[in-house]
Design a protein around this nucleic acid. Structure first.
Lengths: 331, 331
DNA sequence: CTGAAAGCGCTTACAG
DNA sequence: CTGAAAGCGCTTACAG
């Protein structure tokens, strides 16, 4: 392409400078070159640039298989990431990490082919896989989860305070018998949400009854049947909207009215909170802001491998809907 | 990297051949080279290959903004595409086409930077934008929609026969008063689904009453309030699960029982058919097969620009659930 | 079976 | 303000 632009009588160096608005070319020449380039339908070849400076300007977004598919939340997240990357002149390449590849510690092809400058890992992966990633020289960060290793950058929703405030809110509404729904060994998100709940319980000198912590899924993340406690709580704090939705339907089937007999709250503000009847009071994860933070950080890390952010929290917001009712205190 | 491999005493040409399992290198040497490459942590540089053969091995998947976000269906589609592309050694780059860019006929950056070898357009775009695409020399095909221009390749769900068979099924169940829900001027999918419905109506010598065709959305795809006909139908054929879900709730609110008083069927087999109470009988779009077809075709087109497939249909399947009941025929 | 040469399209010093 | 030279890492003829 550039040779043809040369037929304007200048060298390719000058054309390059003009098209990139660099110094060292007169304004007239620049305009002339830009004009001709447009007329000739010239398209910049990003591959050549990548060849030169060793950057692909691609970021790999890795989602473990078990979080894709069913969980539209991460796909929705990916959509945001993709837009934000675009606005930073980068591109996202989605990589679903197969269960088998994760198990057998196989790095994705985008790694082996140097297709990407860095990774955003969206959704918790195994410890072994994390170690594998650390052995590479490719920068990466975790999005929406973290591990006990402080050295790994991660951007997470403020699960702890989100659930803490949500539980506080229920207590203010007069609730005292409050159960938590979620497998607290499953992911760091769920664990933190539980701890936020627990902090609120402790602060208000309530007891944490063992059967008030109700597991919702097995180790592979598959939902299991919920075991309700003998003494019914007046409120259920669920680790996500999906299980809150399932619980609400189960309660209704059992003859309980929501929220008159039991209040139910969720987390995520995804589609399940909207389609639930009644609609769920929930905590909205700030996907937009988290995406912005993740993209900015990974680009920084690509440019400067020593750049670190540690654990970065992004606050959520309580969305008030119809699944909570205040109760009068008896006793 | 390759120079270092050279320190095994051979040329880079030989290394290239060995790593690509090409002819002209002895088996021993190949093994030795592969071994050393693995030991040294050599990673192939796909950029250099792209530079050489002018292919990026990326396919742009373009989703108009109005179909993303709310409509998880296309994101789910993208996930499949991404996997299938991966299995063909290609990569997908998601491009949300902004409403403004579409309006002002701005081609995406992945075009201007030669980031992709071809486009899969996922979701109907404006006529003007299609003409713009035709003026480029980049191969593209339409997925899940088509236009009146026969020359443009497209892969679509067999909307027509899907809805035709669904309507036949309702008639077999004894229904005679059957309404269609959908804006028939909105997209080709909806139009075809309507026509499949209409074919069934015609074949059974039923009348198409004007108020039995109920618009569900405005020109921008925003759902509008449904205007039910004066004489209630016994069955509603909806152009998608989402509106079927909305309709079902509206009917229940008005005091009708579904399916006892009215049957409701949808299309897509997406989340709305699962969460609807009762769950919806619907037509499942074969996303997997459509993704396979789209990826194979676009790769063929990239390799040979003259390759065309025309309009390729992929059959759907009726999923039977609880939203239809048979009725006895009176009169 | 092995390798020297050339080239893909750009950019980065550097020299004029 | 402008350009000649070199190089990014690979592959494709072609010659030995």
């Amino acid at each position: 392409m550039r040779d043809i632009a040369n037929k304007l009588g200048v060298s390719s160096v000058t054309v390059s400078k003009a098209l990139n608005d660099k110094e060292g070319v007169s304004e007239e020449l620049k305009d002339k070159i830009k004009q001709l380039a447009a007329d000739m339908g010239y398209r910049f070849n990003s591959v050549a640039r990548s060849m030169k400076d060793g950057m692909s300007y691609n970021i790999g977004v890795v989602i473990p298989e078990r979080f894709a598919g069913a969980n539209q939340f991460y796909l929705h997240f990916y959509e945001h990431l993709s837009k934000v990357l675009d606005s930073h002149k980068y591109y996202g390449i989605l990589q679903i990490l197969g269960a088998q590849d994760e198990e057998q510690l196989v790095l994705p092809r985008i790694y082996h082919e140097k297709k990407v400058d860095g990774f955003i890992i969206l959704g918790q992966i195994s410890k072994e896989y994390i170690e594998l990633l650390q052995q590479t020289d490719v920068p990466f960060l975790f999005l929406d989860f973290y591990t006990d290793d402080v050295d790994i950058d991660s951007i997470i929703s403020d699960n702890f305070y989100g659930m803490y405030e949500m539980t506080n809110y229920l207590i203010k509404q007069g609730h005292r018998k409050i159960a938590f729904v979620g497998n607290i060994y499953s992911t760091s998100s769920i664990q933190d949400r539980f701890l936020g709940y627990y902090k609120s319980i402790l602060e208000h000198h309530l007891k944490l009854k063992e059967d008030y912590v109700i597991p919702d899924r097995d180790r592979r993340g598959i939902f299991i049947d919920l075991q309700l406690p003998d003494e019914m709580p007046t409120a259920f704090v669920c680790n996500c909207d999906h299980i809150a939705y399932i619980l609400t339907n189960k309660l209704k089937q059992m003859g309980y009215r929501v929220p008159e007999d039991c209040s139910v709250v969720g987390f995520d503000n995804d589609i399940y909170s909207a389609i639930c009847d009644p609609q769920l009071t929930t905590v909205e994860v700030n996907v937009e802001e988290m995406s912005q933070a993740a993209v900015k950080s990974i680009i920084q890390k690509v440019r400067n491998p020593k750049y670190t952010i540690g654990r970065q929290m992004v606050k959520g917001t309580i969305i008030h809907r119809q699944s909570v009712s205040a109760i009068r205190q008896s006793v």
